[in-house]
Design a binder for these strands. Structure first.
Lengths: 352, 352
DNA sequence: CGTTTTCATGAAAACGTTTCCGCCTTGGCT
DNA sequence: AGCCAAGGCGGAAACGTTTTCATGAAAACG
């Protein structure tokens, strides 16, 4: 039915070993033989069976990616970065999304044994360390923006704290003293770090960060919209709001419009993530840019270099913990700029 | 190093075959033996090697997904749908993204041999039929919103045509006679079908669809923004615009604001896709909802049923061509509604 | 008690590759 | 002419499972 290396061998009148040699080019083969083999391969339309090859070479050329339940833009960008550098290096990507608890992660980890050479694990909500410790086995693992207590793994994280702090400092610099926070899910690592940035920036300025200035959102547009009502009833009203992600800022803007509050005149607003549409909002949204694709790409690079270093028994050439920097993007919503054409060339950018 | 089934066999004092029997439960095993084996498995922390198993069972329990270079929300939702139903049925997902030409697709197809049991191929831009015919081999394949000339494959498509037509009819019903189109990439299937819907809806109303009413966009926010200038110079100006996707509508809205045109007062606007933020735009965007996750889910279901039917040598229980319906979502941007709170409960929905 | 059936298990083959080892041929060197 | 090195290639083992077949013991049956 499906043509195997032995069929090709028979067709070319050589042994299977020779076919393998020609295809992989490790050993010298006579020119004449090479030609005959090439012809047979072509004639039979032979393609080597990856699974069988993996068994003997002990390399699947596949990296597994475990992801939580992710929101729109973020997910795509991340996968894009991961897939792009994987493919460039000749690797495949096996994704497994939307893991909510440790048991699920464990099940996936088990099922992946013998299917992947390495792992990228992102789980900002649940602590996967027991599962990883038990079933990670000998696999190189890189954590993406996640925690893993008590087990020493390489990790790549976003500088959530630094980004949030620079945003709040920017708002402080514009004269705001009462700055509210639209927070993310309580157990989410990114959300917590961004909240910490907000808190400490205020502390640095000698200002309080009371709990009643924090709205408990969940990173969704809907929760941002709900925050509108919350804000309307807040007295005295904050003069600025820091939304822990752009999706919430979008919903929030929409709610403010209904309430009749103008941004930035009545209220300054800053977001986080700098999703593509942020520059096209009304007003264009000041935000903290996160190089998401780069995050994915870096994680993949890291796994691959662990993989290579393992083969060569050399120490990895990369840092154990990598933090990818964020960048403050100033647009009109914070009041620092007059609203204007949101083209890339005219938009203000500041380093934190 | 890594523990194999033989190690467990030795530990439990039985043969490897028995371990396999216990783990897979196909044949009866004495209770006492089962217990000993279970203990050994537990003690050695044994996890079967998926690759080795695949080799003999001839099933990898993995489905490959080939995707083009995709935009934000769409990509995530699609993968979400695919991954979700895959996992529910115990399958893995191997993704490979951003394929721009046939040669690339061919290379990936070759590399996937022996790694996947089936394939979901989405390639609205390039015709992959030669590659699929040559290297698809015996694999079950489902096309996602794609064309494949001259080769008979099952396919799932979005009702782009119907969705576009119902949107344009809606605008016509509101009294608009001059309706411009913000088109997508010329070679893209979705874009072409949506353009066709626009054209034929106009034709049905006895109206012309001249080329100068078509802006050649590329589905990006930036091209939507560029369309603003284009529109401003159009004379006589259209009274309504149909954007072939929401991303362009977002950029377009932003440009209109700069130009000083009010939506829907000066210009009615409709989009396509109904991405999550559309309801939070100013004004909330009338759009055509595409159940993207369902699209992915249906594709996966289809592949899996092909897989099963093959094993049972029975005819597949699903239709060869599946069209997923779209739904017109009416909000304020078309002028049919007064702007109001964009909550799910109050927003108008109409069947096409 | 002898025969047959059932049950539990082990040995070995198979899946499709790669790679180690060794054999044979060639050709260059002394 | 004899020797050795190198090149080219085939045989066979190996990777870690599942599954078929065979075998022996126990149970059922007359």
């Amino acid at each position: 039915m499906t043509v195997s290396i032995r069929d090709v061998a028979r067709e070319a009148g050589v042994s299977a070993a020779t076919i393998s040699r020609v295809l992989n080019g490790h050993t010298a083969v006579a020119e004449e033989t090479r030609r005959r083999v090439a012809e047979a391969v072509e004639r039979l339309n032979y393609v080597p069976h990856g699974g069988a090859r993996s068994l003997i070479t002990r390399r699947t050329e596949t990296v597994g990616v475990l992801l939580p339940d992710l929101y729109g833009e973020f997910f795509s960008e991340l996968i894009r970065g991961i897939d792009q550098t994987a493919r460039r290096r000749g690797y495949h990507v096996l994704v497994s999304g939307a893991h909510s608890d440790a048991a699920e992660v464990e099940a996936v980890l088990r099922a992946l044994r013998g299917r992947v050479d390495g792992l990228i694990v992102m789980s900002p909500d649940v602590d996967t360390s027991p599962a990883l410790a038990r079933y990670g086995g000998a696999l190189p693992i890189v954590l993406l923006d996640s925690v893993a207590e008590g087990i020493d793994l390489d990790a790549i994280t976003i500088d959530n704290y630094g980004g949030a702090r620079s945003m709040v400092r920017h708002l402080l610099g514009l004269g705001h003293q009462r700055i509210a926070l639209l927070g993310g899910p309580a157990h989410n690592r990114d959300a917590r770090e961004r909240a910490r940035g907000w808190r400490e920036a205020l502390a640095d300025a000698g200002l309080p960060a009371p709990a009643d200035l924090v709205f408990p959102g969940d990173f969704s547009e809907a929760s941002g919209h709900a925050a509108g009502r919350w804000l309307a009833e807040l007295a005295p009203r904050p003069t600025a709001v820091f939304a822990a992600n752009d999706a919430m800022a979008v919903g929030f803007l929409s709610a403010l419009r209904e309430i009749g509050l103008a941004v930035p005149e009545d209220l300054a607003l800053g977001g986080f993530d700098d999703i593509p549409i942020s520059r096209y909002l009304n007003p264009p949204l000041t935000s903290v840019r996160v190089p998401i694709a780069e995050l994915g790409s870096r994680a993949m690079q890291h796994v691959l270099s662990l993989l290579e270093s393992r083969e060569e028994a050399a120490p990895p050439a990369v840092g154990r913990r990598d933090v990818v920097a964020t960048k403050l993007i100033v647009r009109a919503s914070c009041g620092a700029l007059r609203a204007r054409t949101p083209t890339p060339s005219t938009e203000g950018r500041l380093e934190p």
